[in-house]
Design a protein around this nucleic acid. Structure first.
Length: 506
RNA sequence: GCGCCUUUAGCUCAGUCGGUAGAGCAGCGGACUUUUAAUCCGUUGGUCCCGGGUUCGAGUCCCGGAGGGCGCACCA
């Protein structure tokens, strides 16, 4: 970095350069006073803004509690100088606390040093608590240290950072000035922790399976391709964790789950990011109905945490009720209901009939029967699925890894949970008959050959694993980001991802 | 990939009919010992996203490009 304050990349405008230069002068002044911020290594924090707010809730306006002193550290978010006193707002990970600095308390040198502290700086303060005449809990500063100097100017203190492009590209700035962003990300973290706690409580083991695979299977999606130098081989980034987790079921681990990053080389929009987080969980000796009950328990628990004990969640202006039990409807029955009985089982389960339904809906033709069914369901039923709804009994043609229903071989023991028009979970009793699995992979190979590029190459070792015997098992996949969107009221997946994918600047 | 919208000071935003580039905040100088979007006085600051074109004259109109947002398409 040059002495002029250049960033080393984008050329700075004169205004910004002047702002940075002014901050560098303050840094130089602190150094001259022997208070170099960048020489500090630690600060003995013994309190947080939230703890102090709770502890001193009893203080009445104008009252002080001078017997106890506290060390607090955080970022200065505003500073109001009034002659020989300064008011400032300090923010730490728990919230904000007002600071009060008097020249007659910190001394002439200390007060002079405060002149060189500004919005954005990270400081550590020691002092005692009082409540101002206006009722604001405040720490009166006795001692302080500047722990880091902010050379770059922060966005407007009132408007924050609105420019969405800059918010995503410089998320650190967004997090500093837009408290709701940090609230959302922290809630995400808490919800995922709760998810783990809940699942662990049911005797599951969390595992990690490879991201780099020779054949990315377990879903229909275009994979990312990369090269492994050591092997001089092309590999794919996983598009699901399904097949490896079921190998662990074969191996006798019985209850396993993974919360992991999945990569799909497809579109980017408000509900899709090329890398996203998926929870997949498998339980030996459960069937799809056991899984449905587990799923409902899990979602209800997370809604409880997210709402602080309510069963109704506001999402995009709509109140969504998570009152139990969740609604259940058959896949074919739902399509029939929402088409006034026109699209019958007979039409839908016949490839030619399904094509006719696509035409009736003025949808483009589909490469495969399964693809057509997906399009039909998406158009006819999904817009109606606002409150949480289990859609059950999916046709076998769109469920290549699910077990057929005992009493209806064209349907599977599978459900998807929808909420706010989004698919939240996909679960089924796992197909464990290796011969049936091999036949379905062979059918997929024919569909792939006929032009559906999203259908993966079969993973034949997975069939071999089934030949060693997989117990009856139920599995579930949950799109964690979309679930978090729902639970945090976020309308875009980018608002629940810390660093959503953005195009490289030119 | 297609359509619509958007890009002006560090930030948030105005900018009329094509006629010298504006405000608030931040910054800088000054006053102020319970303020809190502190207040008051003064003040600096512009690659109007980029490149062409039309015009006496373009932030403004036209063409092309880039970034971003939304919708569609895609996405079990």
């Amino acid at each position: 970095m040059s002495a002029s304050g250049s960033w080393g990349h984008d050329a700075l405008g004169k205004t910004e350069a002047a702002l940075i230069e002014a901050r560098r002068e303050n840094l130089a002044a602190l150094r001259a006073a022997g208070l170099d911020p960048f020489l500090q290594t630690r600060y003995p924090v013994d309190a947080t803004a939230a703890e102090l707010a709770a502890r001193y809730a009893f203080l009445e306006n104008g009252a002080a509690a001078e017997a106890e002193g506290w060390n607090l550290a955080g970022r200065l978010l505003s500073k109001r100088t009034m002659g020989k006193t300064i008011f400032a707002d300090l923010e730490d990970r728990t919230g904000r606390l007002q600071l009060y600095v008097r020249r007659d308390r910190v001394g002439d040198d200390g007060f002079a040093a405060w002149q060189h502290c500004e919005r954005g700086d990270v400081v550590g303060v020691r002092g005692t608590m009082f409540r101002s005449k206006m009722g604001e809990l405040t720490l009166q500063v006795r001692e302080f240290a500047v722990l880091a100097k902010a050379l770059a100017p922060l966005p407007d203190k009132w408007s924050g950072l609105q420019d969405v492009e800059k918010r995503y590209r410089q998320r650190y700035v967004d997090l500093i000035v837009n408290p709701e962003v940090r609230d959302t990300m922290i809630l995400r973290s808490r919800l995922i922790a709760e998810m783990r706690r809940f699942i662990d409580g049911h005797g599951f083991h969390e595992v990690e399976t490879p991201t780099l695979l020779h054949v990315a299977g377990g879903a229909a999606a275009r994979p990312f391709v990369t090269h492994v130098n050591a092997l001089d081989q092309l590999m794919q980034l996983r598009i699901a964790t399904e097949l490896n987790l079921k190998r662990l079921i074969v191996g006798g681990m019985e209850r396993v789950y993974e919360i992991g990053r999945i990569f799909r080389n497809e579109g980017i929009d408000t509900t899709h990011n090329p890398e996203f987080t998926m929870l997949e969980l498998y339980a030996a000796y459960w069937n799809v109905d056991d899984m449905r009950a587990f799923n409902e328990d899990l979602i209800a628990r997370l809604v409880d945490v997210a709402t602080g004990g309510k069963t109704v969640l506001e999402y995009d202006g709509t109140a969504i009720s998570f009152a139990r039990p969740f609604r259940t409807v058959g896949y074919l029955e739902a399509i029939a209901t929402h088409s006034a009985g026109r699209f019958t089982r007979e039409r839908l389960l016949d490839p030619v009939g399904a094509s006719g339904v696509l035409e009736a809906l003025e949808l483009p033709s589909s490469p495969t029967h399964g693809h057509a069914l997906d399009k039909i369901f998406e158009r006819v039923v999904e817009p109606h699925l606002v409150d949480p709804t289990f859609v059950i009994d999916y046709p076998v043609v769109i469920s290549p890894l699910a077990k057929r229903k005992a009493d209806d071989s064209e349907l599977t023991d599978r459900y998807e949970l929808f909420c706010a028009n989004m698919e939240i979970s996909n679960a089924f009793t796992e197909l464990n008959d290796p011969d049936d699995q091999r036949a379905r992979f062979e059918a997929q190979m024919r569909e792939r050959a006929s032009g559906d590029e999203e259908i993966p190459e079969p993973d034949w070792d997975y069939v071999r694993a089934l030949e060693y015997g997989m117990p009856p098992t139920a599995g579930i996949g949950i799109g964690v980001d979309r679930l978090i969107m729902l639970l945090t009221g976020s309308r875009s997946i980018r608002d629940v991802l810390l660093f959503p994918l953005q195009r490289q600047h030119g």
